[in-house]
Structure formats: structure tokens, C-alpha cells
Design a protein around this nucleic acid. Structure first.
Length: 495
DNA sequence: GTAAATTAGCGAGCTCCCAC
DNA sequence: GTGGGAGCTCGCTAATTTAC
């Protein structure tokens, strides 16, 4: 809820600042009519009852009576929901006026926009009771930037379909070369990454093999004497084999084959917890079986290691042409390749359209885009269209208090609609273009206050970010308290 | 200078609703 | 039942920043 005061406090109010807003409620439910009504029905009822009532306030020490006005705003979907409207796809698609879709199919009739006089459930696509029935159609405000950016984007899509196919004369063969280069680049970068991963895998496997083969507890002296091919060496008296006493008795019957182990390695062996054959209750056959299993496991590990090593060799040979080329360099090479191609590939076009819609309102960008179009007349209209949008955005950054600024706003909206109709004479009028007409009237009537509605969209976005951020805070009432505290009485909101 | 981490932007896919 | 328009979320990618 945002109070907009027409007194000396006005100077401190910043358009679009959370300072102007008091958060009355918060819900993580879906934006459907039923859930919103269930969650906030009582609040809407109270606000609705305030409509048209009077309060006495002091303005410069003089008591004056003010009549409370209630304004409803948000994106078109939210406005439709508030007024019980069926939605933008319905026949009488506008929640503010009684225009119909058929009228929108012609640029000659689309401006017939008689305001709705009432909101009767079951009539004129009002499918549910309005959440605030006291509100009139003139109380509905449309978020300005929301509409303008939407139109910018929509305009680009329409123009893309109509004009770009003809405007860009590209070389399909060359484009395929670039696609191939992109695929190679991806393979190269993935390959370089896989080599890094492989190196760490080699280290991991090596450590595993060393650790496993270091375990002396596997081989008992008896088992070793039967199994090991170097039995005669296993009793080498130059080595002290009996350094591993049993944990439960004094026996130290652990022996290792000298073929595999030298004194230095033996000194690194940890024999803590060793249990002799007698105390462990195992048989010689058990131990031999265990030994065999151990050897097989070792062989499996070695085979895996060798396979990886061979794979590594193959990978490296394949990627040797990219030796010393880092990811960044490869990316840069591809960029240069694209530039050197000498055509306007779709990549270039994608970059242009993929940018923020607002960026396209800059005259130089509009000129850059329209420079691609051969048709001089279309180019001129296009530049004018985006130039007009640019001027509209600029006007919104002003105080927007003087009559001249309001007239200028109306003129720019009119000009934009004319240009749009000239460029897209056979296109159905987009809903946001229709909303622009209401927006023009609203800005003229409400002045700078009309822009406050835009803040609602900002608030919506901020809350969508804040809510999951505090998801772990319980109980729910505490979470709500934190979020509301962050929101109310702040000059700015940092997320 | 390079790699890792972070951030912003975009498109696919979704729901909802209505017209045909 | 199908298609279209509106807006939303999610995941991917590119751009940017930060760390080494």
C-alpha cells in the first residue's frame, strides 16, 4: 500500500522509493484469484471501505479535510485479478475499458475505448466479484516502464519477423563454418577440462594403488609361504620380520615377501591392530583366498589405471593442436573468426536482440539495428520509433510536474502509436499498445503520482528475492517480521 | 595473465484463460 | 481439442568481477 501525500512531505518523497510504501501483507501462494482472496480478502475489504471517506489533516498549521482516494495498480494480470476480470485473453480483454478484440484487429477502430462504468459479476468478462468493489475504472493505474519495456521487446519481435529475414543477407556456408568452429571450441574447452579432471583421477588411482598394496595385514606368513613364488626369499634373516606382534598374544608371525617390499617401505607400514592367525580364528585357506582376492582387486585397479592412461594418451593426441591454448584464447580466436568472416551471421544479430530491451531505445543502437535494413522508409520510421521510446524514458526521469511535460508525454505516446501503426499496419494491436492510451490519460490525470504504480512491480520483484532468502527462518511470523522490517521505513532497499 | 566465482540475460516450458 | 496471449520459473550461457 502506498500513500501519496499532497503536502510539504512531498518534497521528501522519492518516486519509486520503498519509503512511500507500507507493506500490509505477504504471501507465497500462487497469484490466483482464490488464493489471494483467501489470504487478503479481509485486508482488501478494509481498504475498500476507506474509499471515499474523509480525514482531517494539518497542512501548514491549517486543518483541511481530505477525501481518501484508492488506486489499484500492478501488471495487467494482477489488475485483472483485482477487478474480477477473466484475463487478457478474453473478448473484452481490457480491465479498464469496454473495447473488444475484434476492434483491436484494425488500427482504424482500436482507439474506441469507452471506460467501464461498473464491474458486474457475470457481465463483460467480469467472471468473479471484484476484490475491491468500490474502485472505478479510472482508479486503475498501469505501470509505465512495465508497458514501455514490454512494447520495446514486442516491437523487436514483430520487426524481427517482418523485416530481419530480408534485411540480413547471410552466407549459410560461412555460417556453418562458424557453427563447426563453435562445436570445436566447445570440444576443446571440454577436452582441456577433461584432461585436468583426468590428471586428478590419475593421482587418485595412484594413491589408491599405493595405499592398497602397502597394507601388510593381507598376507600372513603361512599364506605367503604357500602362495608366493618367492617363498625362499620370504625368510630372509637380514630383515626383521617379527616386528608386528599380535594385538592379543605375543606371536609375531607376520611375514612379507622381499620381492615386493624393501626395508625402507617396510618401515612405513602401519601394523597397529594386527591379529595373528591363531587369535583371528581364520584358516590358511581363508587367508589364501583373501590373498587371491586382494591380488585380483589390485589387478583390476591396474587395468583401470592402464585404460585411463591409454584414454589420456588418445585424448592428448587429439587435443595436441590446442596445446597451450587456454579457454579464453580459444574464445577470442572464435570471435576473431567471426569478425573475419565478413558477413552478418545470426550470432551478431542474436547479440543485438538478446540485449536488454531498454538498451535498444538508445538512438545509436536503433540506428545500428536499422542500418541493416535496406528499406530507407522503414529505417527512418524504425529509428523514429525507438527514438520516441528513448524520449519517453527520458521524460520519466524528470519531475513530471509541469503542464508542458504532460503535454509532451501525450505527444510522444501519440507519435509512438502512429509510428507503430505505420510499420505494422496489418498486425493486431498489442494489449500493451492499447494500455498506452490509458497510460497517457492516467499520467495526465495523476501527474508524478502515476509513476508510483511502477514501484509495485519493483516491490514484487524484491519480495520474490527476499522470501526464499529467509526461507530457513522460523517461525513464519518471525520471517515475516524480518522481511517487513527490511521493507518499511527505508529510503532504499538493498538485496 | 589465468582461472574461478559471481551475476545478468535470455529462452524454453509451464499455467491460466478464452476464442474458435 | 487447439491455438494464442499473458506472465512466471528454471536452467543454461555469456559477461563481468575477483582471486591467485
Amino acid at each position: 500500500m502506498g500513500p501519496i501525500l499532497d503536502n510539504e512531505q512531498n518534497e521528501e518523497l522519492k518516486v519509486g522509493s520503498p519509503t512511500n510504501f507500507i507493506l500490509l501483507g505477504l504471501s507465497s501462494l500462487s497469484e490466483s484469484y482464490e488464493t489471494v482472496k483467501e489470504a487478503f480478502g479481509a485486508v482488501f475489504q478494509q481498504v475498500n471501505d476507506l474509499y471515499g471517506t474523509s480525514i482531517t489533516v494539518k497542512v501548514q498549521s491549517v486543518e483541511v479535510i481530505l477525501t481518501i482516494r484508492i488506486k489499484c495498480g500492478g501488471d495487467l494480470k494482477a489488475v485483472c485479478m483485482m477487478m474480477g476480470h477473466a484475463g487478457a485473453s478474453s473478448k473484452m480483454m481490457c480491465p479498464i475499458c469496454e473495447t473488444t478484440k475484434p476492434l483491436m484487429k484494425s488500427w482504424d477502430t482500436w482507439k474506441q475505448t469507452p471506460y467501464r462504468s461498473d464491474y458486474v459479476t457475470g457481465e463483460k468478462n467480469i467472471s468473479r466479484p471484484p476484490l475491491m468493489p468500490n474502485l472505478k475504472s479510472t482508479d486503475i493505474c498501469v505501470p509505465i516502464v512495465h508497458v514501455l519495456t514490454g512494447l520495446t521487446k514486442k516491437g523487436m519481435i514483430v520487426l524481427e519477423k517482418k523485416l530481419m529475414g530480408e534485411a540480413l543477407d547471410w552466407d549459410d556456408e560461412k555460417e556453418e563454418e562458424l557453427r563447426e568452429a563453435s562445436r570445436l571450441l566447445k570440444y576443446s574447452t571440454d577436452g582441456l577440462k577433461s584432461i585436468r579432471d583426468f590428471k586428478s583421477k590419475v593421482i587418485e588411482v595412484s594413491n589408491l594403488l599405493i595405499n592398497q598394496s602397502k597394507n601388510p595385514k593381507v598376507l600372513s606368513n603361512q599364506a605367503c609361504s604357500k602362495y608366493c613364488l618367492y617363498d625362499e626369499l620370504s625368510h630372509d634373516t637380514t630383515l626383521d620380520w617379527d616386528q608386528s606382534p599380535c594385538s592379543y598374544c605375543s606371536k609375531a608371525n607376520h611375514v612379507l615377501c622381499t620381492h615386493n617390499w624393501d626395508a625402507e617401505l617396510l618401515s612405513t607400514i602401519n601394523t597397529d591392530g594386527f591379529i595373528c592367525i591363531d587369535c583371528s580364528g581364520t584358516t590358511i585357506d581363508d587367508l589364501i583366498g583373501k590373498d587371491r582376492q586382494c591380488i585380483e582387486n589390485l589387478e583390476e585397479q591396474e587395468n583401470e589405471f592402464m585404460e585411463l592412461a591409454m584414454h589420456y594418451d588418445g585424448e592428448w593426441k587429439l587435443l595436441s593442436t590446442h596445446e597451450s591454448r587456454t579457454t579464453s584464447r580459444l574464445v577470442e580466436e572464435l570471435k576473431q573468426m567471426r569478425i573475419a568472416s565478413g558477413v552478418y551471421p545470426r550470432y551478431y544479430y542474436d547479440d543485438l536482440v538478446g540485449a536488454d530491451a531498454r538498451r535498444l531505445t538508445m538512438p545509436e543502437n536503433a540506428a545500428r539495428l536499422w542500418g541493416l535494413v535496406e528499406d530507407e522508409q522503414v529505417r527512418n520510421f524504425g529509428i523514429s520509433l525507438f527514438g520516441t521510446l528513448y524520449e519517453l524514458f527520458n521524460l520519466l526521469t524528470t519531475e513530471f510536474q509541469s503542464a508542458e511535460q504532460k503535454v509532451q508525454f501525450g505527444y510522444l505516446v501519440e507519435r509512438m502509436q502512429q509510428l507503430w501503426a505505420t510499420i505494422n499496419p496489418t498486425e493486431t494491436v498489442p494489449l500493451k499498445m492499447h494500455a498506452l492510451t490509458h497510460l497517457r490519460e492516467m499520467m495526465s490525470r495523476e501527474g508524478h503520482a502515476g509513476r508510483e504504480i511502477e514501484t509495485i512491480e519493483h516491490v514484487h520483484r524484491c519480495l520474490n528475492i527476499l522470501w526464499p532468502k529467509y526461507a530457513s527462518v522460523t517461525p513464519l511470523s518471525h520471517r515475516l517480521f524480518i522481511i517487513v522490517s527490511r521493507f518499511n521505513s527505508r529510503n532504499s532497499l538493498s538485496l
